[in-house]
């Protein structure tokens, strides 16, 4: 799989639910359909809940990776306004 270059990156390490999702939602709202958002986070629950919520809102989860002891990296493609 070729590397996906995100159009926007947010680092929400240190934030808890629901602000992890609030920040992610605001970020994706500001983007165009088809663009990819990269999210770096360290709140374990959010590594599950954000992909689920993004799917519920109609977006595509491209990647959920544990990139270090504490951090996750998510790639979400905006599918609709």
């Amino acid at each position: 799989m070729e590397d996906i270059i995100p159009n926007k990156r947010i680092d929400i390490r240190g934030l808890h639910c629901p602000y992890t999702f609030v920040k992610s939602k605001l970020a994706i709202e500001s983007m165009n359909v088809g663009e990819v958002l990269e999210i770096v986070l360290d709140y374990p629950e959010a590594s599950v809940s954000i992909p689920k919520s993004m799917q519920d809102h109609g977006h595509k989860v491209l990647k959920v990776d544990k990139i270090s002891e504490k951090d996750w990296l998510l790639l979400i493609r905006k599918e609709k306004e």
Binding site: P18, Y19, F21, V22, K25, L26, E29, H57
Partner: peptide, 16 residues
């Protein structure tokens, strides 16, 4: 963002 977070989360409201 904190004050209005419960609005922003709603798909029908959001940041917009």
């Amino acid at each position: 963002i904190l004050r209005y977070s419960r609005h922003i989360i709603l798909p029908e409201v959001g940041g917009k």
